[in-house]
Amino acid sequence: MADRREYEVFEVFVRKKKTDAHVHVGSLNAPSPDIALTTARENFLRRENAVNLWVVPRGEIHETPCDEGDWFARELDRKYREVSGYSENGRLWKTYRERALYLEEIVQDLHPPSQGNRPRPRRERT
């Protein structure tokens, strides 16, 4: 591509909030990375807010094969690493007149929705 006379393809990634990861939203053609960034804003964020944008030359992306389902195969039981694998806790706690403790409850206690600790609505772009 050293003799490229045409634009290059850039993949576009958007971070919507500081606490979010970048998410792929599509691709565009641009003559250079800086122009790719400024055109990406209007081609992908005309109605949405964001705090950060990445553009990556298509050739710099390494991906898993798309039609090889086995790449992601996870067939046998892995409940031992999931919450659902421990449903008996509830029953066991009952014998001690207590109940199982879940993460959601802790989060809930630390961030009660009534106290306005919910994420505030984002400011409208004016």
């Binding site: 053609n29 641009a30 122009i35 400024t38 055109t39 804003r41 209007e42 081609n43």
Partner: peptide, 8 residues
């Protein structure tokens, strides 16, 4: 001159 730039 180009579609992306048109939008911007």
């Amino acid at each position: 001159p180009d579609i992306e730039g048109d939008v911007a």
